[in-house]
Design a protein around this nucleic acid. Structure first.
Lengths: 167, 167
DNA sequence: CCTTAACTTCACAAGTTTCTGAAAGAAGCG
DNA sequence: CGCTTCTTTCAGAAACTTGTGAAGTTAAGG
């Protein structure tokens, strides 16, 4: 009854691994570096959203060094947090159930950079030219996006839990 | 009076080039390949939004081969269109004033891929587990985003011109 | 139809990124 | 305190990416 078959009652490690690699590949296509993407996907699919360094290295068949690099990146960008297993020297890494997509959706820093580059562009072209109008309009678009994204995330939070953000 | 100085009355090629490289760098950080990003930025900052292959190679100091590769990518993704200069064998490339940001904002294909990966993930983990809930919620988030993005772009079009989309 | 200008394709060299093994660095536990 | 277990850092090998030159293809214009 533990064999492969339709509608498994239990976690299917092979299928999970397939998902992890597939989803990680898509994160990578979207610009995330390969190892961080794999580690993040593995955590997403883990039972409790928590894995140790050793478990990660094991599942993904990567060296401790690779795990180290990946989790450093992920915790710097607040996609995961590290915690120490009490009474052990093992580190555990956890996905934030209710915050990680905000981190993804929130490209505020990026938008600001784009905006500032565009302001520079506006001053470089001839006043009154089509180029100037084009750049101004693009700038307005990014300002629009910035406001919209903020509101969108507010709506998501509301929809999720009128109770509040933490779970 | 055509020298460098404060508030130039005319287009300042050096400043434009600085903008092009800066903005292209940011597009590259966001995941666009280097050459397409530079070509696209150059078109954005060009006076009429139109440049020939030769002009592009000239301004960016890249080979015809590099131009060719970049414009192929850009026109495949509908960020620019190619047109033939009538009575000449030169090709011209043009940014779409009112559509290119839609192309950027419209990550529908990407969202669909993420969603389908997540659906696969949901079936791989144990039913009723926290993992299942986590993946389901993530899936819902992306479904939410998809709807929101569509509405956001509709609002942008409205705001731009009640007149209509073409200019 | 031949010439020639323009664009495209392709193989490869140069440059960059990525992951590993090895060694060094922390920190629990006796 | 020192032993042991885990994590981090770092230099370098391997893999991948990128842009070029050169050859090939297309089509305008004589």
């Amino acid at each position: 009854m533990t064999e492969a078959g339709a509608s498994p009652k239990e976690r299917d490690p092979q299928a999970v691994s397939r998902f992890v690699e597939l989803f990680a590949g898509q994160l990578a296509d979207a610009g995330m570096a390969r190892m961080p993407a794999r580690v993040f996907a593995a955590l997403l699919a883990s039972d409790d959203g928590v894995l140790t360094s050793a478990e990660l290295g094991d599942q993904l068949r990567i060296s401790p060094a690779a795990v180290s690099g990946a989790v450093r990146y992920l915790s710097q960008t607040h996609l995961i947090s590290r915690e120490r297993e009490p009474g052990s020297r093992r580190e555990r890494y956890r996905v934030h159930n209710n915050q990680w997509y905000e981190a993804i959706a929130n490209r505020e820093a990026m938008l600001r950079h784009w905006q500032s580059a565009l302001r520079e562009g506006v001053t470089a072209v001839s006043p009154g030219s089509p180029a100037e109008e084009r750049l101004r309009e693009t700038l307005e678009f990014f300002e629009f996006i910035e406001v919209e994204l903020t509101e969108m995330m507010r709506r998501w939070r509301e929809k999720r839990g009128p109770a509040g953000g933490l779970r």
